[in-house]
Design a protein around this nucleic acid. Structure first.
Lengths: 332, 332
DNA sequence: TCGGTCTAATTCAACGTTGAATGTACCAGC
DNA sequence: GCTGGTACATTCAACGTTGAATTAGACCGA
């Protein structure tokens, strides 16, 4: 595998020009005659030259690599977010290095610190365990953008954060259910411990929409969960039904919960959407292929990724603090 | 963001030693007195020095970065595979750069070529569009390991491939269903076009197990799909049931198909596992949280990742060709 | 006293690339 | 014949780090 590297100097020697001229050909810089350029290109092809990016980076000072640190790729929401980041970054000639923190403060600090990562131009962090003080003494030679609801709290006024307005999104989703004729809307996804920002924001939006529509909040329609996964969704739906709660709309705080709930509804003979209209959150691929279909809130991942990369490109020209990107409702 | 970088020389100047001594402290190399070491560490802390990894890499010749190129992170199987790779690599002080090819030959070639990627020590590629000739003239300065069923075909005898024995796995899964008392086992996941290696191997294993058990293959129990997702699974199950096929076991060629099929079974009142036992493939997280639970084939992702990294660590000492890792059945 | 073996720290050069500065040759215009 | 411009190419140094070789002193035994 490890035959000696072909360098600019090798090409230069073969063609009989200076290394700098070869460099000029490779980078389309400076002046190079057509004849020389041609010869250089041929030699590059023949010897199989590829630029040494470490050297280039050392010289230029930037690497074209971004780190994306998120809790885990095993959750579809994050996996799809990562997927979008990788693609969007690619369009800008950047590559993304994905690392997983497991949501632990310790590993989030490591990511902030850059331990173990190669040289990066920017860090995108979706924290769960960090607090605001932690980001205060981060290294300052890498630009940082936080994402996620917990990230918003951590970012404060001094750091960049990009995200949707969760309260407004949940309110819009709820309002849509109301507009479709639901007036007893249950919710699944209220969390009572851990980093509960997401859960709280979405519940606030739900409550807001009900209030606006003049519908009273009914505690018996609130489904509590510990985590946002399919099993919890299925169980929460079971509990609601077993408790005798009757509902014609169901707002799940993410799509995995919704997929779990759908199963229970199916087994219990509650037809979707005839008897119960279901709304999820996140627009994950799995939800798009669900039968029966359910509506969801699409968080505008492309917009988010682009906004984040804009900020990383010129962090000083953009004011720190919260940056909002639009969400949209996907009605199915 | 961009204050001037702190270098070894800065630390050296402040402490009054040579840069090399500071380097020795940082890397625990050479001889450094306890007193000097302490002073250096203090200075590093005070000035906030962090090694320039581009320079280090240029000097050392290796980057500690691996590229993992797979079709898409949006599919849970690949997302979880990536997740495992990132973690396993971390244990070895390596970082993983994830790129997505979308399964297109063109972008797989780009990955092989390294275009746009920073300097990497190894490439792990899960191809779908490539053919064997394509890997022949790849760059040889980076070690390559292929994964996935299509990867196996592409690898041939000359390249490294790591994976499970799909035929044996499908046979074992089918045998397990038979052992549990099923004698009419339907299958969902036969593909008729595209890169169908996976589908074919798994069907072969299924057929093999039936033959061994003396059960005749019944075409009416074969569910065809275009892709491996939930909706196709649900639809295929519908078609089987609507066609009047009666079955007491269901082998789905991946967990997403199984999850889709489960929904249909639930709606049609076919209790799982009382009436129908369901077996999936891949052991994705979503399946672990499924209600009702279903069994699956766990492809041994950790073992696979470790094997791959072993090969990348010393590609020349290990014979190229197919390397098998164990699978296991997860009975739920 | 001399050489030998430690420990501790240094010097030097090189990894491969590219910005800035500089050189050369040729031609046009006055 | 001199100046100025254009087209092409070169030299030089530096990015920050570290392996190899070297130095310097301290200590030890003969």
């Amino acid at each position: 595998m490890a035959q000696p590297r072909v360098t600019l100097a090798d090409i230069a020697a073969r063609v009989g020009v200076s290394p700098k001229t070869v460099s000029n050909v490779v980078n389309n810089t400076g002046w190079v005659g057509a004849e020389v350029r041609e010869k250089v290109l041929v030699a590059i092809e023949e010897l199989g030259y590829r630029p040494n990016l470490a050297a280039r980076q050392l010289r230029r000072g930037s690497s074209g690599v971004l780190a994306l640190a998120l809790p885990t790729l095993a959750e579809p929401y994050f996996a799809e977010l990562a997927s979008v980041f990788v693609d969007v970054a690619r369009d800008r000639n950047l590559t993304v290095l994905v690392s997983q923190t497991g949501g632990s403060r310790e590993r989030e600090l490591e990511a902030l610190d850059g331990t173990g990562l190669p040289a990066i131009d920017g860090l995108i962090l979706s924290p769960l365990g960090l607090d605001a003080a932690d980001v205060e003494h981060r290294r300052r030679d890498v630009s940082l953008v936080l994402v996620g609801e917990h990230g918003e709290r951590v970012a404060g006024e001094r750091e960049h954060h990009v995200g949707i307005d969760n309260v407004a999104a949940a309110a819009a989703a709820t309002a849509e259910l109301i507009a479709q004729g639901c007036n007893r809307i249950a919710t699944i996804g209220v969390q009572d411990e851990g980093p509960t920002e997401t859960s709280r924001d979405r519940f606030d939006g739900y409550a807001l929409a009900l209030r606006r529509a003049g519908i009273e909040l009914d505690d018996s329609l609130t489904g509590h969960v510990q985590e946002f996964n399919r099993a919890e969704g299925a169980l929460a739906a079971q509990r609601l039904i077993d408790a005798g709660s009757v509902f014609d709309g169901l707002l799940c705080f993410n799509d995995s919960l919704a997929l779990g709930a759908l199963y229970t509804l199916g087994v219990r003979g509650l037809a979707v959407p005839e008897r119960v209209r279901v709304m999820g959150f996140d627009d994950i691929a799995d939800g798009r292929y669900s039968i029966p279909a359910f509506s969801t809130v699409a968080p505008g991942r492309e917009a988010l990724a682009n906004r984040v990369l804009d900020i990383i490109a010129s962090p000083d020209k953009i004011d720190p603090g919260h940056h909002e990107v639009p969400f949209s409702l996907v009605i199915r």
